[in-house]
Every structure is written in structure tokens, then in C-alpha cells.
Design a protein around this nucleic acid. Sequence first.
DNA 1: AATTTCACCGATAGTACTATCGGTGAAAAT
DNA 2: ATTTTCACCGATAGTACTATCGGTGAAATT
Lengths: 231, 231
Amino acid sequence: MTTPLSRSEAKDRTRRRLLKAALTILDQEGEAGLSTVKVARAAGIAQSSFYVHFKDMQELLRVLAEESGARLRASMRRARRRAREAPGDLDSHRETFRIPLEAACRHPELLRIQLRARHDPSSLLRDFAVETARAYREHHAADLAALGYTADDERDRRRLEMIAEGINAATNALAIGHLEGRYPDLDECADILTALSRGALRLLRHTSGGAAQRESGGHPEPGPGGDGLRR
Amino acid sequence: MTTPLSRSEAKDRTRRRLLKAALTILDQEGEAGLSTVKVARAAGIAQSSFYVHFKDMQELLRVLAEESGARLRASMRRARRRAREAPGDLDSHRETFRIPLEAACRHPELLRIQLRARHDPSSLLRDFAVETARAYREHHAADLAALGYTADDERDRRRLEMIAEGINAATNALAIGHLEGRYPDLDECADILTALSRGALRLLRHTSGGAAQRESGGHPEPGPGGDGLRR
DNA sequence: AATTTCACCGATAGTACTATCGGTGAAAAT
DNA sequence: ATTTTCACCGATAGTACTATCGGTGAAATT
């Protein structure tokens, strides 16, 4: 019945089982729960056979980070291409925030792992986490540039970076909330992110336009000092 | 020269040294680097003497979380009282965002530890992290209520929660950025947060006022569909 | 058919940590 | 002055994991 696998095919299958098992354990128990014993058992081989496939756990995690990173980037690219092909005009702004949100939710285990590793000095996946965060930020900055928001001077560039970092953090938080079932509607999450960025980008916009910065009436502003922001 | 310490005083001093040492190691090496060996050595006692003061590492972390939580809450209370006493009118809105930012930066190690533990299923400090995040969110929701933003129906209440969660995440991200030296000016961080929330709160405001929701002119909106948000 | 290769196995030495034990000396109580 | 208490010590048994070793049988090569 089962096709007799060649030796290299069988080895590759085992290797993939090891990577898959490691990812599952990483997600469920965290990096602390990871060991060659558990990963090998979950993959159905002896603990010592782990070393046939990887030099040590660090190498497995390096490979896992590389593959996951590639998967994430591909996922993001696909989503962006889809967004370009169906512009929808009205939705294009919201799509900017929906795409990273969807990318994050498509790989929940990677999101959780990345959030943990990001601030853990002992994590072997820290580089992966930092790199992923950087990719998100750059993606976002590019999208904002496409929407016409530019940063000319030093100050605005720093502000744009702060906004991107804040929005990225909010995106992750809402994605987690969505995965936990608290925010079932992903469109609503995207709306919140859109609204968050809308206010912040006004800080940048006034450098380019002319008669900007005026607020519409009917809103009780916190004080008589314009929009309450220092410059 | 040195006053001869009573036995209980000496014991208490040692206990505090253990807690302090644990906090430092936790911050520098993460929870994975924590062990009775290291903590005891850093506190200047034998490893076995650790158990004179704590049943096990879990109990030490419980005590540490309780004390740190109390410290954080006290820090937050002080900051809010200070803000109330010097209202400053124009600054009151920004203060709303500056206070948690300052509270986070006043205890960098607690911020980092909390961010790590938050999503780590194996962390013994997870309850502490979740509780701290909840306290931040509630503090923020209360401040928003004080500024006149109310959530009447189910939908608005959920949106307020999402905004608070997003702003909280952004606050932590900017606080980390500030501690890492990338954003030296804490006021600027507060400005960004103020601006972020300003856009989002507009989603809520229209339920109370009458002729709200109109945008001021001069801004190139993404499309002809109003502000591009679904309702 | 004979030989070589190699993925996998069990056994095990080495490492790091936890938690308990009896012993000790100085503080505290009598 | 004598006894008791107890914070701290060193030693050690027990646990979990890492990484290496020689052995084995089936696939691959000759």
C-alpha cells in the first residue's frame, strides 16, 4: 500500500516532523518547555537520533526561524498583491492595516512565539523576533508612503517611526485579542487601527499641506490650546 | 561601627537581598536564567539557605510579583494625584498618556519582565503580567471617562476596550523605545499616544454629540466614502 | 552477491539544578 | 550561667537534560 520511501525521503520526513513538533511545543509550553527529549518523542524517534538531523537545539531553532520568517514574508507578499489587485478605493486605507493583522492571525503560533522572544534576553529566537518586527515596521512605513504620508525632516522621520512602532504594537495586541476570541470581527480590529493611525498621521501631514490642522466643529476640545500638542 | 543587628533584622535583610537579586537576574537573564544557585550566590548565602526564606522559587516569584504590583500601583497613584493637583488645562489630555508612560519607565525591569511573562505559558509570573495589564487598561478607561468619552452600548464598550488595549500596547512599545534611547523625549512619546487616541476616540464620540463626524477640509481623503470606516 | 552507507537505536557519561539533611555557632531566652 | 533557638553552612540524593558512543539492519552501491 504505502510506497516504500527512499532513504533521503524518509530522513527529510523525520526532519520535518522534528521541526513541526518543536513549533508545537514552543507554542504550547514556551521556550522553557523545549528539550531534545520532548521534541524527539513527539516526532517519534529516540532522543539521541535528534542529533542526526541537527547539531543541537540552537540549530533547529535557527532553521525554524528562517523557515518561519520566509513563510511570514510570503504570506505578507501574497496579501499585499491581493490588495493591489482589488483596490476597492474606499477600503484601500483599511486594507493597509488589515494585511498585517491577517498575516499575524494566519500564523498564531509564530505571533505568540515572536511576542515572547522579543524581550527575552535568553531566547535563542530573539533575532528572529526583532527581524520580524522590523519587517512589519518597514512594510507599514512603505504603505504609509504609498498613501502620501512623507517624512521630510529628522523630527518627522522619528515621529513616523514612533507611529509605526505604536501601530505595530497595537496590531499585535488586537491580533492576540482576536485569536483569544475577544474581538471576533477582524474588520473591526482594522477599523480601530485605521482610526488610531488617522489621528497620529495628522501630526505629520501639516508639514506638506497648506491650510491643514483645523479641527471640525462640534467636538469639545480638551482646552483652548488648539489640539493640545506641543511642537 | 556597624550596629549589631538583631537576628530578625539580619534575616529580613537577607530576604530582601534575595528578592533584589532575583529581580536583577530576572531582568538581565530572563526567567530561564533564574535558579536558586544564582540567586543565593548573588545574595551572598549558600544555595541551601535559600530555603530558609522561601519554600521554593515559585514562592519567591509570588512575593516578588505582589511587592512589585503594589509598587507599580503606588507609583501610578502618586502620578495621578500629581496630575490632579497641577491640572494645567492644556496639558491634561497629554498627561493622561504621560502618566502610564512615566510609571512604566520608572520601573524598567518590571516593564520588561511583564512584557515577557505576558505571553509565556510557562512563566510563573503570568498572573502578575496579566493583572498589571488589566490595571493599566482600567486606569486608562477611567481617564478616558473623565475626559468625557463614554461607551453606551455593547459595540462602543467593545471599541473602547480595543482602543485601550491598543493604546496600552503602544505605550509599552514607546516606553521600551525610550528606555533603549531611541526616543529620548518622553513628552514626544506622550504626544504620539495622544494623537493616536485622538483619531480612535472619534469613533466613539459621534454617539453623544449631534452634528459630529464631519471632517475638516484640506485633507486628501482616501476615497469618496467619507472617512473610509465601516459602521 | 558482496560491500558500503547511514538513519536510528539503547546505553551512558557529564552537567546543572532542586530540595533535604545533620552540624555549627552566635543570638535569644531561661 | 545554662539552655534553647535558628540562620546559615557543606554534603548529597534525586531529577532532567545534553551530547556522544558503539551497535544494527535495511537501503544503496558496487
